[in-house]
């Protein structure tokens, strides 16, 4: 129950900072941090990873970390050279 209250509060905070202009420069890091917090709360408590076998944690973490690594690398190969197909062709 406590976890649920925390989750609700974080969501409220997320929306709040979206509308506070003073925090504009911090917006993305803050949002990512909040999102990460919610993510961890759900998997650790709601999905019992905190109390359950380490094997489950490893299975899930393997997929999650692989996803992060591989797709960050992939997106880097695009954005280091200016994003997707920067010169759309005129003719099809």
């Amino acid at each position: 129950m406590k976890i649920a209250v925390v989750l609700a509060l974080i969501t409220l905070a997320e929306i709040a900072i979206y509308y506070i202009p003073a925090l504009a420069s911090l917006l993305i890091p803050l949002l990512v941090a909040f999102s990460f917090a919610k993510f961890m709360l759900v998997i650790l408590w709601f999905m019992h990873l905190r109390f359950d076998s380490r094997i489950f944690t490893r299975l899930f973490a393997a997929g999650l970390l692989l996803t992060l690594t591989v797709f960050i690398l992939m997106l880097l190969t695009f954005f280091l050279r200016g994003g997707p197909a920067p010169t759309p062709p005129g003719i099809t």
Binding site: L59, G63, L64, T67, F71, G83
Partner: peptide, 25 residues
């Protein structure tokens, strides 16, 4: 339960691919 966790690990890659596509576009 073990199977479900393995499946969820796999799903990370599934949604990761879609989210990356979105971020690209």
């Amino acid at each position: 339960k073990l199977a479900m966790w393995a499946f969820l690990g796999s799903e990370c890659l599934f949604f990761g691919s879609f989210i990356s596509t979105y971020l690209l576009y």
